[in-house]
Amino acid sequence: MHRITVIGGGFAGLTAAIAAAEAGAKVTVHEAHHTLGGRARTAEGPYRTNDGPHALYNGGPHWTWLRQRDLIGPLAPLPPLEAARLRLRHHGALRRTPPFAMLKLLRRAARQAPVDVDFRTWATEQAGEEGARAAAHYSAVALFHHDPGSLSAAFVQERLRRATRLPPEAHYPRGGWANTIDRMAARAWNLGVRVETLSRADTLPTDTPVIVATTLDAARRLLGDDSLAWPSGRTALIDVAVRTRRGDAFAVSDLDAPGWLERFTAQDRTLAPAGEQLIQGQIPIGPHESRADGIARAEQLLDLGFEGWRERVTWRRESTANGRTGAVDPPGTGWRDRPAIDRGDGVYLVGDQVAAPGVLSEVSFTSALAAVSLALGRQPRDLGGATLDLKRA
């Protein structure tokens, strides 16, 4: 029987543990925290917040895999009237529709963007400066980066298309991501996976293949490999609970600068006490900006979309997501150029900043299944009902 050690009990680590156990391996998971989930944890208490929105996009391979195993659970549907309350800030005012120039970049017939040119340059040629700026800023909802226009045009275009597709691809587990994590943990337990929490790994075992499912920074320290680095986003997060008021926006997308607000209780009222609404703002900030700079911009959006919110606040939390928002690809690079999954000597690296395709959590999922396939001596495709072919993807 194969034995596999997984370091990290977040979404990627649990995916790897389940896939390996289903293939007949004996799996041990080490998690440094006292609970599983990593960045997919949901806060306990009356305000159930996540470290970012953590949407599940149903266009990726993980959706079918999770569905087949009943791991997603009940979803929080967005009422049509709430969906109509999406607002866009453009030239300092709220509007209901994007600028026409931006729509040119959303057409199905739009040209495939190149990898080796930045999005701002390419999109300006296609739709003009105003359309390019608005599209780049809107894409920040799936990028968490302070300057999306500076990234690879192909990278940004894929995320822009996924974020604006109708009907929307983004879905949210009812009660937060903890619901999905709990289901995954139960699945792993039933498959015989041994889970050790409060178990920090400072060295690698040498008697089994090891799947490292940590942040890239933690993996760099654990493996002693300074090459494990890749650009990511840095985002100011603000969670605000306010007393309910008719007419509040569902979401506000900033087209003047990267930024996004969303009222999560519009689709899932279990996230806050009755009579209250839970709003999260995510404002990407540059290397020389502070969290306070991002929070100030978030408050400007709140002023526009949530009238009188300051007098209605019942709870508030602020934080910074630094290097925890997935890989971003500069011009001339793609997912294949990120740190490789196979690190040699039976060590495999998974997560959302490694060499695997997909958007947001899809990268963690794809890399986890690929790592298990490699650890078991198989090809990284058609494992557990999810078809993966990293050479052709």
Rank of each mutant, 00 (worst) to 15 (best):
H2E: 15
G8K: 09
A12E: 03
A12R: 05
G13S: 07
G24E: 06
H30A: 14
T35F: 14
G38K: 00
R41Y: 11
N50I: 15
D51N: 12
G59T: 06
P79K: 12
L81A: 09
L81E: 12
E82V: 02
A83Q: 12
A84H: 04
R87G: 09
H90A: 13
R95M: 03
P98C: 11
P98R: 09
K104Q: 14
L106Y: 12
R108I: 07
A109M: 12
A110N: 04
Q112L: 11
T121K: 01
T121D: 04
A135H: 08
L143F: 15
G149M: 07
S152H: 06
R162P: 07
R162I: 14
T164D: 06
R165T: 11
L166I: 03
P168S: 13
P168L: 10
Y172D: 08
R174Q: 01
G176E: 02
W177F: 01
T180H: 13
D182E: 11
R187L: 05
S199A: 11
T206S: 14
I211N: 01
V212Y: 04
A213G: 10
L216M: 11
R220L: 07
S232Y: 05
T235Q: 09
A236F: 08
A241W: 08
V242K: 12
V242S: 10
D254Q: 14
G259T: 14
R263L: 13
A266C: 10
T270V: 00
L271W: 15
E276L: 01
Q282H: 06
P284K: 01
I285T: 05
P287T: 06
A298G: 13
Q300L: 08
L302T: 10
L302C: 09
L304V: 13
W309K: 14
W315N: 01
R316H: 03
R316W: 05
S319T: 08
S319M: 05
T320A: 06
G323Q: 00
R324I: 04
V328A: 14
G334C: 04
W335G: 03
I341T: 04
V350P: 10
G351S: 11
A355C: 02
L360Q: 14
V363G: 01
S364A: 15
A370L: 02
A371Y: 02
A371W: 02
A375M: 14
L388C: 02
